Simulated scan of single mutants.
Amino acid sequence: MITSTRNPLVKALRQLGKSTKARREQGLFLIEGTHALSEAIATNFPCATVCYTEVWQQKNPVLYGEVLERAEQLEPVSEAVIKAIATTMNPDGVIATLPLPDSARDSGINSIGLVLETIQDPGNLGAIIRTAVAAGIDEIWVSQDSVDLTSPKVIRASAGQWFRANLRSQGDLVQTIETYKKQGIKVIATNADAELTYWQADFSQPCLILLGNEGNGLSAELAQVADLAVSIPLENGVESLNLAVSAALILYEAKRQRDVASLD
């Protein structure tokens, strides 16, 4: 059992939780907690190292058995070590490292794709990923100047749905959008000044939805490649909605329209 917080493995894992650079150098990222580990196992995501306390093992015998079959390395550790590695205040006794995913294969857009530009809040990004999976979005492209997709906060905010999302970190979003436009995919941007409300747009055909930075919205460069822009009406005196809330409204309107169209 590892009991020292000065252990080399413990030091390496602590860096994974704190630093994008460390994650890239080690080729690994960190997940925390039973729920995240369960989702990783359920989606057949490979596990590198799993650190767990004896109490956690006793409480989770079935999951422990699955981890025993899947993980490359299992390390029993003390409660103090778990707390030293964790990025949360009250870890529940298990932490794992997973290999950084390869770039997702472009599987095409059958219904809705989502493009996210310069998202800075990991909580927002995680919540959007969670909603997108629930709404059946095909793919999610995230600009490379956004918060790191493998940040523990992003994964935690996704409530485990990170492992079910088709995520792509993209350097040139304009090129990606133009490629899909040539395939007949409609591109719908969000713009607070747009006259067309989001429920007036037609999401029944395959389309890309563009969402921008929390404070500044979409860049002019991305807004210009859209086929149309939509807004979310707000009462006087209300400046804006939280980005994740805006995403949920639009994605579920798109889902509603597609579900209705499928009944015709």
Rank of each mutant, 00 (worst) to 15 (best):
P99E: 03
A157L: 11
V77G: 12
L68V: 03
Q224P: 00
S103Q: 14
S111D: 12
K182V: 13
W56L: 07
D148H: 11
E69W: 01
D121F: 00
A165V: 08
E75W: 15
D172T: 09
V154F: 10
T118A: 13
A127C: 06
Q183I: 00
E32N: 06
T87E: 04
N124K: 08
H35I: 12
V174H: 07
T5P: 01
V154Y: 07
Y252R: 08
Q170E: 15
Q144M: 11
P206T: 09
S146M: 03
V133H: 11
D202Y: 04
I109E: 07
Q205C: 10
D193T: 12
I119W: 02
L74A: 06
I232S: 05
A194C: 03
P46F: 13
Q161E: 13
I155S: 00
C47L: 15
L37A: 05
N44V: 03
D102F: 09
S143R: 09
I155P: 11
E66D: 05
S246I: 11
V225Y: 01
I209S: 02
V238M: 13
D92E: 14
D138Q: 00
P76S: 10
P206V: 08
D172I: 03
L243I: 03
K255D: 05
T150F: 13
L98M: 12
A12V: 00
Y198C: 09
F163Y: 15
D138V: 06
T150W: 05
A165P: 07
E72M: 10
A71E: 11
T97M: 02
F203P: 06
L167N: 08
G212C: 06
I95Y: 00
N124P: 02
N7G: 01
R6Y: 09
I128D: 04
G33R: 05
L196K: 15
V142F: 09
N213P: 06
N44L: 07
V94P: 06
G212W: 09
G27N: 08
L228P: 00
L251H: 08
M89R: 15
S19M: 01
A86Y: 07
N236R: 11
A40D: 03
L234D: 02
Q144K: 10
A157C: 12
L149G: 02
D121L: 08
V142W: 06
Q205A: 13
D193Q: 11
T118W: 08
W141C: 13
F29K: 02
E239C: 01
P152S: 09
R256G: 01
R164V: 05
P101I: 08
E239H: 10
E54Q: 14
I85P: 04
V174D: 02
L234T: 06
W56N: 01
K182L: 14
E221Y: 06
A12W: 00
G65V: 08
A104L: 10
D148S: 15
D193I: 01
